[in-house]
Write a protein that binds this DNA or RNA. Sequence first.
DNA 1: AAAAATAGGGATATTTTTTGTCCTTAATAG
DNA 2: CTATTAAGGACAAAAAATATCCCTATTTTT
Lengths: 162, 162
Amino acid sequence: MILKSQVEWALHCCAILAGLPEGRYLSTKALAEFHGLPKEYLSKALQSLSQAGLVHTTLGPSGGYRLARAPAELTFLDIIEAVEGKARTFVCTNIRANNPCRAAGYCDDRPCAVARIMWEADEAWREKLRSVRLSDLTETLAKEIPADLWKSSFEWVLERAG
Amino acid sequence: MILKSQVEWALHCCAILAGLPEGRYLSTKALAEFHGLPKEYLSKALQSLSQAGLVHTTLGPSGGYRLARAPAELTFLDIIEAVEGKARTFVCTNIRANNPCRAAGYCDDRPCAVARIMWEADEAWREKLRSVRLSDLTETLAKEIPADLWKSSFEWVLERAG
DNA sequence: AAAAATAGGGATATTTTTTGTCCTTAATAG
DNA sequence: CTATTAAGGACAAAAAATATCCCTATTTTT
């Protein structure tokens, strides 16, 4: 069970978009080039962000993406669920219903106990991801990335932002 | 990102094995029949439990599986990791290294900040699963399952346990 | 007005993972 | 000796992930 690589891509792209000045847009092409990713497929991930309302887009030259909200109002979970979907990571197929000792037509009044535990763990994962904001990530990156790399990356992006 | 169905199967099978009297074994065939699962494929899940040392096996007629430890000493995480593997659910491909502004030969001194957050969430999931013992599940089941179904299921298993 | 660049999205292809089956081998109980 | 079992290898089918290609409508630039 491994998350799609698009999740990683979307998080990194959002981190870049978080640094974009008000009103500017960055294209799929620039984001793909910056991260060394296949442009067409990255585009699908960005479309997911767009459909989830996390980013705004414009068309035409100088078009692209910008965040729809402030980085402090965007959580990791928002981004991950946009790309990966909101479905729980454990699917209960209710195999208890196959118990040969069950009376025909027997009906369970609660979800399977196994599933309930698995879903609690899933929720613990989501709760952690909900607690981290995109702004937390950018603050960490600002501290950790060497100042000259940070600056040149910022300039690289600005040169391409419409 | 969805867990293998074998995870669900393994958890239910362990719940059954937890009710087995000391020294008795239950075969793949019985476990598959009880849960309505494909015997050959379920066998792979049980082999994973065996390789992880969670169950003991014996060969021959009246052979099969029994728990290697008391249900209170077996966690959900033990079972899930035996089947699903211990690898983290987020794989970092270190796309930050593709940043065109990086000096050649530049070397990161810490794991990517995105990955660290994702791994924290993964750990929150595991910590929750580590906190639930197989005995917790069987206690819940004992409360929730109607007494007659509980009893007949137990008898069904005992008739087939070697 | 024309040209170029963009996002959106449909169709399709490739690769990997999951799910499942089949068969052989070695061990064990009766 | 026979029947039954777990272990495990080989293989096949189905599903999901990872792309690639192409067309359309829109927007900016020329």
